[in-house]
Design a protein around this nucleic acid. Structure first.
Length: 635
DNA sequence: GTAGGGTTAG
């Protein structure tokens, strides 16, 4: 793309003509070419209709004629250079402004401030602002405040806002809109909340744009309840309001809430757009709800909506996470233009299914295609390596990431590598790697080491990892359970007691592990020992039959046993067997890690009934078929 | 006939 457009310098009108080649729109008649107004009118029309490039060409033509640009001309021309992000053109325009004596025109100054801010040159913007004889106009403050905020200079934005208030300059809705997006880190939320109050006090709370903006602020700060409270108080919600809330829920992992809101939106006949669907698909991916995901895909197709790259990526992610890798791959292959996110989604998809080799191949292909990887795609490929046991490859990638792409590995990358080393028993190396990390290890890093200690039964190192991990994540029950299981295997009853005591002291209760299975568009949820499902009796009978060796064994009348202690994944599996046709795959989702006992159980069942079972747990997919599991290095 | 603003993917 052209980064700038040479404008004709005022002193030498012909110099740049030769190196500029575009079809020039010539609508200007000779009679009008000497006066400014017709040029300005045309310029305004072009700029209004988004024909920015054409507007700048027209401006250049204007300079070649004898018409003199004025403040209006510059306002339009600057707007075009802002929209096209052409800093050099903007700077040239600034020179023209000075030469033609328009530099004290407020509209021109405001446009200049905005232009410099859009190009990331806030210091130059500030200079224009300071040169103003009396910078008391609200619009100028607005332009510079939003400019600072957009350039992540929150402090200067804040102090300018204070200055504005101190000087008694009136602020308006646009001021708030420009400033609020700066309050998107939890530390600044208090300021955002006071803006919210100020907003209400000044009667600006009917402005939907501000409400949307505040809503996004709460979402980004992780205050999802406050966001919802605000959402419920907005009397006339716009599509953007719905989208902001839906993607807010999606980003915070609240998938059930996303679907609920989406259905509410449908019932109110609010027409969703691509942004809505991206949020909904992300929720389907999190829930493993392929049915709704498929419905959304059909809806997109039937609505004639242009399926943009964001939507395609969301579809790939949804199908991959729901276990339908073939469908995800078809969408990926059919995409004419794949971006980094598309590659990340498909690589991650293969990774979580244990197909590390394919993931690695795709990653290499991506690099060949010339797409520069970022930290996130490295997380996908490193985790694929660890799930597939590609230890050397994974270590090579960590190196590649640092040396070739100059990317600083984050804690997430190290947790993959610790997992990678830990799984193959290189525990000592994993521990040393943690010590040498350039960033502070987080809970996931120590957690990965703890998990590896479980596989390789290293109690001593497990205790070290556990002490670190509970310091960082004292309420994550999973780690207590993991250590307790390690002690169980080591017959260390004293250790088990210690863990239990610790949990009691900290008032931690074991999170009920639940599993669910999607059947005929309905999701059936099971909690361990749950007896509330309408088919409970049949489920337990089925489990009894499976436990006793054969699905064909005719022991229908036997009463269910051990009802209370039944694991949720077993209940879901039995339910699935009762309610699906022979030959279909069974995909069950478990919120925590599948337990070792159930792992062996599903293996056995897969042999008995000759079906493919896919159990997705918190960390990976486990494919069970004919008595074996393709992710069986855990147990 | 002028200037300033908000929502989307892993």
């Amino acid at each position: 793309m052209t980064r700038h457009l040479h404008l004709v310098p005022l002193h030498k009108n012909t110099r740049f003509l030769s190196n500029f080649h575009t079809n020039q729109p010539t609508i200007i008649t000779k009679a009008s070419s000497f006066t400014t107004i017709p040029w300005n009118t045309h310029l305004r029309n072009l700029s209004k209709h988004g024909q920015y490039y054409e507007a700048l060409i027209l401006y250049r033509q204007m300079l070649q004629s004898k018409a003199t640009p004025n403040a209006f001309t510059f306002s339009f021309a600057l707007k075009s250079s802002i929209s096209l992000s052409l800093p050099i053109t903007g700077t040239q325009l600034h020179c023209h402004v000075i030469k033609l004596g328009c530099k004290y025109e407020p509209s021109v100054q405001t446009a200049l401030i905005s232009m410099y801010c859009k190009c990331g040159l806030t210091e130059l913007a500030r200079k224009v602002f300071d040169e103003m004889p009396e910078p008391s106009l609200t619009v100028c403050y607005n332009a510079l405040i939003s400019g600072y905020v957009q350039n992540y200079d929150f402090l200067n934005g804040f102090s300018l806002f204070c200055e504005m208030r101190l000087r008694g300059v009136e602020f308006n809705a646009v001021t708030i809109l420009g400033f609020v997006p700066g309050c998107t880190v939890p530390e600044c939320l208090w300021l955002g909340m006071s803006l919210h109050c100020l907003n209400v006090k000044c009667g600006l709370d009917n402005d939907l744009a501000i409400a949307n903006c505040l809503l996004t602020m709460y979402v980004r700060c992780g205050s999802i309840e406050l966001a919802r409270k605000l959402f419920d108080h907005i009397p006339e919600k716009g599509l953007i309001t719905w989208n902001a809330m839906i993607s807010g829920y999606a980003q915070n992992g609240l998938a059930a809430e996303v679907l609920e809101l989406y259905h509410e939106m449908e019932s109110l006949q609010v027409n969703p757009d691509a942004v809505t669907f991206v949020g909904v698909l992300s929720a389907c991916a999190n829930l493993g709800n392929q049915m709704i995901g498929f419905e959304v895909e059909q809806k997109i197709k039937s609505s004639g909506m242009r399926c943009n790259v964001f939507l395609k990526n969301a579809l790939i992610n949804m199908y991959a996470r729901c276990g339908n890798l073939a469908k995800a791959r078809i969408i990926f292959d059919e995409m004419p233009e794949k971006n980094l996110v598309s590659w990340t989604a498909i690589i991650g998809g293969y990774g979580i299914h244990g197909l590390g080799n394919t993931a690695v191949e795709l990653f290499d292909k991506m690099i060949e295609t010339g797409i520069r990887p970022d930290g996130t795609v490295f997380v996908s490929v490193l985790s694929a390596c660890s799930h597939a046991g590609l230890t050397k490859k994974g270590l090579d990638y960590l190196d590649l990431m640092k040396r070739e792409f100059r990317l600083k590995p984050r804690s997430e990358h190290y947790s993959c590598v610790v997992d990678l080393l830990g799984r193959v028993g290189r525990l000592e190396e994993a521990r040393k790697l943690i010590e040498l990390m350039e960033v502070e290890p987080d809970g996931a890093v120590w957690g990965a080491l703890l998990g590896a200690c479980k596989i390789h039964k290293n109690v001593e190192l497990a205790e070290l990892a556990f002490n670190k991990v509970v310091e960082l994540e004292p309420t994550n029950i999973g780690y207590y359970v993991l250590l307790s299981n390690i002690y169980t295997e080591a017959n260390n009853s004293e250790g088990i007691l210690r863990v239990r005591l610790m949990m009691r002291e900290r008032k931690l209760k074991k999170d009920p592990g639940y599993s669910y299975f999607e059947c005929k568009g309905k999701t059936h949820l099971f909690v361990a020992g749950d007896g509330s499902h309408p088919q409970t009796k049949e489920i337990y009978k089925m489990l009894n039959r499976l436990e006793h060796g054969g699905v064909n064994k005719n022991d229908q009348n036997q009463e269910p046993r051990d009802v209370m202690g039944m694991h949720s994944e077993r209940l879901a599996i039995a339910f699935a067997l009762l309610n699906t046709e022979i030959g279909t795959d069974i995909i069950v989702i478990k919120n925590l890690r599948i337990c070792g006992d159930c792992h062996s159980f599903v293996k056995r069942v897969s042999k008995i009934v000759d079906r493919l079972f896919v159990v997705r747990d918190a960390t990976r997919f486990h494919h069970f078929q004919n008595g074996t599991c393709s992710c069986n290095d855990y147990w």
